[in-house]
Amino acid sequence: MNNPYFDLLMWARGPGFDIALTIMVGGILLRLVEIFVLGRKKDLAAPKGNGVLQGLRTVFTRSVPRKGAMKEAPVTYIAGYLFHIGFFVAFLFLGAHIALIGDLIGIQWPAANKALIEIATAIAVVALIALLWTRFKDPVRRALSTFDDYLVWVLSILPLVTGYAAVNTMFGDSTLMMAIHMLSAEALMIAFPFTKLMHAVTFAVSRYYNGSIQGRKGAES
């Protein structure tokens, strides 16, 4: 009980988390309102296909690359998939995370074993490094990259690395590491609505629009 970092951990678990969650949820809602208030004009052209259905379908089908697309940007595609899968396995199937989410929304599901979580974490970290490498090395990605891209990279890798370190008592005091892990996750949450992390919500909206525009014309999407 006389660990000097205990108070910090308690703050991160209590008020810190509440502040981050409030900013994240409020920010996301605000950003969504910001999008939807702009509206879109009703399409008056006689439809040839069902835009709504194809829009909904595209939300899912766009998760799979088009034939031949993968080989044009293998690092981006493969590391992109691995990062998302690894990140979500580690995030959603670690016992402590499930308990936390359970406290918030009252739903529980079985946890994965430690080895699986650690493999997922390692895969996500390696994938992020590959993505950063291609961002530096590939002229298209380098030219597109802004501060936002690098900030989000740092904010995404920190919870993975610190979580791994805290669980395995690496890099010194585990209470401190756990506090840092929670604070890094909270930084990610706070940045979420104001960076490209928003894609994790709006990808569904964009894919829907894309599919519905194409679908009305009877075109593929």
């Binding site: 990605r141 597109l144 928003m198």
Partner: peptide
């Protein structure tokens, strides 16, 4: 600039895959 445009810009992760197409 309407809702689809705002949604598209919000969603872009600057992955660069559009260039390959």
């Amino acid at each position: 600039i309407d809702a689809p445009v705002a949604s598209f810009f919000t969603s872009c992760v600057s992955c660069g895959i559009c260039a390959e197409a």
